[in-house]
Simulated scan of single mutants.
Amino acid sequence: MAKVGRGLPAPKSKRRVKYGPNVVRLVCEDLASGMTYNEVTQGRGRPSHSSLYEWRRRYPEFAEATDAARAFGAEVCGDRALEVAEQATEETVRKAKLEVDTLVHRAAVLAPERWGGRGAGLRRAEPIEVVFSVRRFEKVVGPDGRVCVREIKPEGEV
């Protein structure tokens, strides 16, 4: 009988990192430098993915801080895309285009209001109210034999 998990790497044993201002600052600095959640969780003294998501759910101020940090990270991605594009040569243009497109897409994911392609200064659409009214009609044959249509008004309307 085959062993369960055979061929899979053993899970990393991580010490549970407690939520606090120092770890929040560290996580936000890393996110603001353009790092991914995966990169942020690597190394000793770093929170796990599940801790980050739990903290975002439990602490609204942490969610707000990480969102702001990721928006700064989007700017880093945009700056890096510009550097890659400027350094491209005829031989490297295909690879550079892929890298630039990936960086710009990542920036759009991190900060869609700024990098999402909707243009600067556009606000989200406000909900509108749509009102439908139903009118009823009937077919009427006139005294001259011509057929016409007449609206049936609700009681009390003229």
Rank of each mutant, 00 (worst) to 15 (best):
V84D: 00
G156R: 03
K139S: 09
K153L: 14
T36A: 03
S133Y: 03
E90L: 11
R16F: 08
D144K: 10
D101V: 08
R124Y: 11
E129C: 04
G34F: 02
A74M: 03
S133H: 09
A69R: 08
W115F: 15
E126D: 09
A111S: 12
V141M: 05
T89L: 06
V147D: 07
F72R: 15
A65L: 05
L31Y: 04
R123P: 01
R58Q: 05
K18C: 03
V109P: 06
D67S: 14
T66I: 12
F72A: 15
D67N: 11
V84R: 11
N22Y: 09
V109E: 14
E29Y: 04
G7S: 04
T92W: 10
T102Y: 09
E39R: 02
P21C: 00
E54L: 12
E61N: 09
F72K: 15
G121Q: 14
A74F: 02
E29A: 13
E86C: 14
R57P: 00
Y59M: 04
E83R: 14
K95Q: 14
C148G: 13
R6S: 15
L26Q: 15
T92Y: 08
V140D: 04
L82T: 14
T102G: 13
F137V: 02
G20T: 07
E64P: 02
E61D: 14
C77S: 11
L52F: 11
L82R: 15
F72G: 10
R94F: 14
P60T: 08
W55G: 08
V131T: 11
L110S: 08
A96Q: 07
V76N: 02
V23H: 04
P154Y: 10
V27H: 07
Y19S: 06
V147C: 11
T102N: 01
G119W: 14
P11V: 12
K139P: 00
A108D: 03
M1E: 01
P47Q: 11
E86R: 15
